[in-house]
């Protein structure tokens, strides 16, 4: 119920923004559209964060690096001359393997440790992955081609054009994947036995074990799914940035995704979706406002550089002050 109301309010707000924006010269409309598209990637990573949080009550700081590693695996496969879809399979399989190793080697030994230890352990795992990437791949940027090229052979842009803004096919794919994965996960957690078992584990691991559910199996399942989600986000996002560097997902995506997940409510899958889009739009409109408005002689972004990130922090603070459990979360 709450989900429907909040989503409807946000859609109406978005529509109003577009309507008002249509009357403005150099208006925000292309930025709003771009924000929704960026938000799709934030939402994908946020989905993985929420999944792990629902299952284990841990903020997973390694979620971003799953994506970077998947992107590197895809890059390596394509460089070897393998077809794109084989590369994607290799990337997904490799990342799932890393997820398994992470679960068995780091998370499982800490299964009964305080949550803060597990949180720090995911930080250590993320930094370890970043360190290995730097050591093996160096900091030099590489380029990764998208699934469908942005420009076809005759030079015309693929994809669609909204408000004079060409949208690459890759962005549309990301939005579609986010929508369908969000739906599948929501169904999974409310309707299937396995999904309910995962939720039970997060609420009371001891009682769940007494009920005959193997919490180790649940933990493994959660981390494999999280790795898979992270890998999908990485494969979809990195070609859009144009540069594949170590820690690209952690430095560009992880923090907005976390903010989005918190705004949506850490325990809510639709919340991750909504929060991701909200962050995308807020960031993008902030960027537009920074160039559009002026304070005295100077543009806003000259007075406050990075105004779009400041707006993110303000939105996060506002949401946490008024609704600590997030827009769609159930508990604080």
């Amino acid at each position: 119920m709450r989900t429907t109301i909040v989503s409807a309010v946000l859609v109406v707000l978005l529509g109003l923004g577009l309507l008002v924006g249509a009357g403005v010269e150099n208006g925000p409309n292309p930025f709003i559209t771009l924000g929704v598209m960026n938000g799709a990637v934030f939402g994908l990573v946020a989905l993985g964060l929420v999944l792990v949080y629902k299952g284990t009550r841990v903020f997973n700081f390694a979620q971003g690096e799953f994506g970077t590693i998947a992107a590197y695996l895809l890059f390596l496969s394509i460089n070897r001359g393998w077809p794109y879809w084989v590369g994607i399979l290799v990337a997904l399989a490799g990342t799932v393997l890393i997820g398994l190793v992470l679960e068995r080697g780091v998370i499982r030994p800490l299964i009964n440790a305080p949550r803060i230890n597990v949180l720090v352990a995911t930080i250590a795992a993320a930094l370890f992955m970043i360190g290995m990437e730097i050591l093996i791949a160096r900091i030099e940027p590489r380029s990764l081609s998208p699934i469908i090229a942005a420009v076809d052979s005759s030079g015309n842009p693929n994809g669609v054009t909204v408000f004079n803004l060409p949208i690459e096919p890759q962005r549309l794919i990301a939005l579609g994947v986010l929508l369908s994965l969000g739906g599948v996960l929501a169904w999974f957690f409310s309707k299937t036995d396995l999904g309910l078992a995962v939720l039970a584990t997060s609420q009371d691991a001891f009682a769940t074990r007494v009920m005959g559910i193997g919490i180790e199996r649940m933990s493994r399942f959660i981390w494999v799914s999280a790795a898979l989600l992270g890998a999908i986000a990485g494969i979809l996002y990195v070609p859009l940035t144009g540069a594949l560097t170590p820690a690209v997902m952690t430095s560009n995506i992880l923090i907005p995704a976390f903010t989005g997940a918190v705004i949506g409510g850490m325990t809510s899958l639709p919340g991750a979706f909504v929060g991701g889009i909200v962050i995308g739009v807020v960031q993008s409109v902030g960027l537009w406002a920074g160039g559009h408005f002026t304070i005295g002689e100077k543009a806003l972004q000259e007075v406050i550089p990075g105004v779009e990130q400041v707006t993110i922090l303000l939105v996060l603070l506002a949401v946490l002050l008024s609704r600590p459990q997030g827009l769609l979360g159930k508990e604080a």
Binding site: G105, L110, A113, A121, A124, L127, F128, G131, I134, L135
Partner: peptide, 16 residues
């Protein structure tokens, strides 16, 4: 560059 690998490794070893 090695610090970024050794540091987290030591941290994981410590915690586990």
């Amino acid at each position: 560059e090695l610090t970024l690998v050794i540091g987290p490794f030591l941290a994981l070893l410590t915690m586990i």
